[in-house]
C-alpha cells in the first residue's frame, strides 16, 4: 500500500520526521544529524545577532540553507502572544516572506508547558496576518480542535515536557486528537528514543518533531538514523493495521497432526 506524502500548508514532504537544530556540539554535527534523519522540515530559533562577532564565522542558515530545507522558525522562549507574534514577523522578514512558523507560547519555566490562552490569542493574530501556523500545544483534544478551527495548518501536541525524553505519556488523548483532526497532527516535544517515535506514528500521527532526543543522544548521528527508521516503521505498522490485543493466548502452530 503506497502511503500519501505528508502535506503541510499545501507543500508535500516525503519525510514525516521533523527535527530541531538546537543543543548540538557544533554546526557540523547539526548538519550531519539532520542529513542522517532524512528530515526536510527543520526548526530554528530567532535571536539577537552577536554584535562584534567574527564576520567570517559560518551561521546556521549557511549550513542548513533555506533552499535545501524547509526552515521552520520557532517562537521559543516566548511567554506571551505579543512576543510570539513579534518573533514570527521578524522571522518572515529574515526568510524573505516565508510564512511557515512554529508557534510556541510557554506558560511555565520548569515544565515548559504551553500557555494555552496566549497560544490561542497568538494563533488568531498570526493566521489573520497570513502565517501558516504549526502550533505547539498540550494533549487536550478540545484545545487541538480550537487551534484547527482558528486556521492553524498543523497541530502539534506534546508527548511530554520539552527535552524530557519521557515519550508519549497520554496515548489515549493523542488518539482522540488524531481521530478528530482535519489537519496534520505532529507530536512535538518529549520524544526520547526511536520506539517513542514509532509509538507516535502507530497512534496515527502524521509526523513527529524532535530535537533533544537526537542532539542529546550519546551518538546523535546514529540516533538520527534510528529515528528515521522508527518513524518509518511506526507509519508502516499504522498503515498495516495492527492485530487486536487479546486477553488469552492464541497458538501460532496447528494442533492437528500432533504425533505426541
Amino acid at each position: 500500500m503506497q502511503d500519501q506524502p505528508l502535506t503541510v500548508a499545501g507543500k508535500t514532504y516525503q519525510s514525516r520526521l521533523l527535527v530541531g537544530t538546537g543543543k548540538y556540539k557544533n554546526l557540523e554535527e547539526t548538519r550531519a544529524a539532520i542529513l542522517a534523519s532524512g528530515a526536510e522540515i527543520v526548526t530554528v530559533a530567532i535571536r539577537r545577532t552577536n554584535i562584534g562577532q567574527n564576520p567570517d564565522e559560518p551561521s546556521l542558515l549557511e549550513v542548513i540553507p533555506p533552499d535545501e530545507f524547509t526552515i521552520l522558525p520557532n517562537t521559543a522562549g516566548c511567554y506571551d502572544a505579543d512576543s510570539a507574534v513579534r518573533t514570527c514577523r521578524l522571522a518572515r522578514e529574515l526568510l524573505d516572506g516565508h510564512t511557515l512558523v512554529k508557534l510556541e507560547v510557554l506558560g511555565d519555566e520548569k515544565t515548559l508547558f504551553p500557555h494555552i490562552t496566549e497560544t490561542l490569542k497568538a494563533a488568531e493574530t498570526l493566521v489573520a496576518d497570513g502565517f501558516d501556523v504549526m502550533v505547539y500545544t498540550n494533549d487536550d483534544p478540545i484545545v487541538a480542535r480550537e487551534l484547527e478551527q482558528i486556521g492553524c495548518v498543523a497541530v502539534m501536541p506534546l508527548a511530554a515536557p520539552i527535552g524530557s525524553g519521557l515519550g508519549i505519556r497520554n496515548p489515549y488523548n493523542i488518539i482522540e486528537i488524531v481521530e478528530n483532526a482535519n489537519v496534520p497532527i505532529i507530536v512535538d516535544a518529549g520524544v526520547g528514543t526511536a520506539s517513542d517515535a514509532a509509538v507516535a506514528m502507530e497512534l496515527g500521527c502524521d509526523g513527529v518533531l524532535m530535537n533533544t532526543a537526537i542532539a542529546a543522544a550519546q551518538n546523535p548521528v546514529l540516533m538520527a538514523s534510528a529515528m528515521k527508521k522508527g518513524v518509518e516503521a511506526g507509519r508502516e505498522a499504522f498503515l498495516a493495521g495492527r492485530m487486536p490485543r487479546k486477553r488469552f493466548a492464541s497458538a501460532s502452530s496447528p494442533i492437528d497432526g500432533a504425533f505426541f
Binding site: G20, K23, T43, A45, P73, T212
Partner: peptide, 10 residues
C-alpha cells in the same frame, strides 16, 4: 534597534 538572526533551536 534590534538585529536578529536564526540560530539552533527546537
Amino acid at each position: 534597534i534590534e538585529i536578529v538572526h536564526a540560530i539552533g533551536g527546537g
